[in-house]
Amino acid sequence: MTHIEIVEMDGQLLEGIGSFCLRSKKKSGSYKGKNKWLHQQFEKGLRYVQLVQDHQQVGFIEYTDAEYSSRVVHAEGYIMIHCLWVSAVGKGYGTQLLQKCIDDAKQRGKKESRC
């Protein structure tokens, strides 16, 4: 039986599990820089959520309040997704991660997009 778990990262978990990007090598300067930046952004409310299936990461989403986004956007009251990655399409991984983001935004009273 497949077990899927949503793991909300924080500074402590980041040190143990690490951030994830297929292009990153844990000893590289860019990987270390990304983790340093994540630590700083956690203090501003950044959310970094991993989707884990049978103890292996199969996706992640990184989002924050638009006011604190590293992107130049003017969207006060909204959530800004910085990155979404899944290991395979058609398995519902992206849907689960996006739903987590939407649920979090609703719980925090964020505005809804009218796309």
Rank of each mutant, 00 (worst) to 15 (best):
K27E: 15
K27S: 14
K27M: 07
K27T: 13
K27C: 14
S28A: 01
S28P: 13
G29Y: 09
G29V: 12
G29R: 12
G29M: 06
G29D: 14
S30D: 12
S30Y: 03
S30V: 13
S30M: 00
K32G: 04
K32S: 03
G33N: 13
G33Q: 04
N35W: 04
N35A: 10
K36R: 14
L38P: 14
L38A: 07
L38W: 05
L38T: 09
H39G: 15
H39P: 15
H39L: 14
F42W: 06
F42M: 04
E43P: 08
E43R: 11
K44E: 08
K44P: 00
G45K: 00
L46Y: 02
L46A: 07
V49H: 00
V49A: 02
Q50K: 14
Q50M: 14
Q50A: 14
L51S: 01
L51W: 12
L51E: 02
L51M: 04
V52D: 10
Q53W: 08
D54W: 00
H55N: 15
H55P: 15
H55C: 12
Q56W: 07
Q57L: 11
Q57S: 13
Q57P: 13
V58L: 03
G59A: 01
G59T: 04
F60I: 03
F60L: 11
I61T: 02
Y63V: 03
Y63K: 05
Y63G: 05
Y63H: 13
T64R: 00
T64A: 09
D65R: 10
D65G: 09
D65T: 11
D65S: 15
A66G: 06
A66M: 05
E67V: 11
E67A: 09
E67S: 10
Y68W: 13
Y68F: 11
S69W: 01
S69I: 00
S69D: 01
S69N: 04
S69L: 03
S70G: 13
S70D: 13
R71F: 12
R71Y: 15
V72L: 15
V72H: 10
V73M: 06
V73Q: 08
V73Y: 05
V73L: 05
H74F: 14
H74G: 15
E76G: 12
E76P: 13
G77H: 06
Y78Q: 02
I79S: 07
I79E: 04
I79Y: 11
M80D: 14
M80P: 06
M80T: 11
M80V: 11
I81Q: 00
H82R: 02
H82D: 11
C83V: 05
C83L: 09
C83D: 13
L84Q: 02
L84T: 01
L84D: 02
